[in-house]
Design a protein around this nucleic acid. Sequence first.
RNA 1: CGGGACGUAGCGCAGCCUGGUAGCGCGCACGCUUGGGGUGCGUGAGGUCGCGAGUUCAAAUCUCGCCGUCCCGACCA
Length: 527
Amino acid sequence: MGGEAQNYAVSFRLAAHLACVDTPPGVRYALKFTLHDELQQTGPDDLLMAEDKLPTRAQDFSEWYNQLVLKAQLADYAPVRGCMIVRPYGWALWENMQQALDRRFKATGHQNVAFPLLIPRSFIDKEKHHVEGFSPELAVVTIGGGEELAEPLVIRPTSETIIGHMWSKWIQSYRDLPVLMNQWNSVVRWELRTKLFLRTLEFYWQEGHTAHATREEAEAETIQMLNAYADFAITDAAIPVIPGKKSDAEKFAGADVTYSIEAMMGDGKALQAGTSHFLGQNFSQAFEVKYLDQNGQLQHCWTTSWGLSTRVVGAIIMVHGDDQGLVMPPKLAPYQVVIVPIFKTDEEKKTVFETARKLKAELAKADVRVTLDEREGQSPGWKFNDWEMRGVPLRVELGPKDVAKQSAILARRDRPGKEGKVSASLADLPTTIQKLLLEIQQSLHDKALAFRKSNTHDAKNYDELKKAVENGFAYSFWCGSAECEAKIKEETRATMRCIPLEQDGASGKCVYCTQPAKSKAIFARAY
RNA sequence: CGGGACGUAGCGCAGCCUGGUAGCGCGCACGCUUGGGGUGCGUGAGGUCGCGAGUUCAAAUCUCGCCGUCCCGACCA
């Protein structure tokens, strides 16, 4: 049975109760206070009334996240530990992300492919670092068709090996290069500690794989795709990110250099939102991916790989979400606009729906992703809250008074309460809405960037670093030594997130050992 | 893998200590009411009490074992 669901609800109950106490007074919280007062009089059972409220982020960020994913119907726990089921609303968001990314991949000459789920165990063993990195988290198939397999198969944790194997057959000449491929799939890594979207045993992603004739070209590809991810995060997901280089301790097993984009979540923790690896010749040597160059010399290819996963769904939740629930960036939102009809009598219902359906068609025609909430039995107020929780960027409230005036109320999700509401005429609603959506997109990004800035500190010494990573990023000089990095991690639980590619060129003293340091790095506690 | 919590209706819980006909709320279905910020009332459907042994006339309840989930840590491109 759903034991997984029980515990969060236990704490949620408490959380809901505490939320009643902690929430500052205001119009929209009046109900909560009323409930709380009743609770005091009538006993704990009436807490049930508050059960569909979220905990606040300040009170329990982790619980807020867990609840929200389930309540907004983005995903649910699968019957297998650590696995998730992505529900239609969550998958619709992922599909929009896929499209936004796929566009960029195609524009830079990549083609989509599909490699198999099962990989011979021996393939993993061929690249030394890769084995070390992945062995503990492999799922292995040993029986097929009721028979013990001669060679165990692993469920792909990533596809470098099998792709390398095939490339060795396909690539012979410099004329065959570059090879620019990408695949959308899922991979399995046996993680010990899981959280919906952020770390699950199986997760959905894309993995790009490319092979090049020269180191320079492969390095340029690595950076190009890192930039594509950054552009996607900033312009489509409205998430400001820091592109940078990983330390040896944090890089991908098998890569020469790993780059990532790092984002700050609403609790000040860091999340690696995409990675791009320069693999050097590690895999081409292990799998003998070779080509004959213009001079008739046999050369090993230079390869790259890069990936971005459904983890970014988690980032969108944790960056933009507020105490009312999700806030979807308009460019990726499954629904950009929801129309909530308001009526009393059957006659009103008829005219309101007529106008609402017409409006929906017009918006759809203007390429706005719109839904009309035709559910029976729920009051408009209930629907307002429901769609706010689900993060729809813009709500259109349409009632008899509006139809009479040929106008509608627009409510912005990013500006809660009455301030976010304006009246707009029906005639030019599509234009007004398109403009508003762009505004919301921009304001989400700006707000997230302002938040990151205010929680990032140029920590000049170790004490300042310790303080900074309590609830944000420390941006500090680092000498580059693994020892300093390890000590910092051990003593503060903060890891070296990345060395930002953009540096101001100054040099200083390592935040830990005070030895000369040439570049600054981001340190933070991370998901 | 260590520490903690838990598993009873779709969901959240009570019942267990002290064994004796399985309960409450939400949700769901139906009806009325209400509807511009989480309406109110009534009626109704819904459960192998995680699984397996044991003790007992009798087990949701006591004993043992197993399985599973969540949280904290360790671990984690």
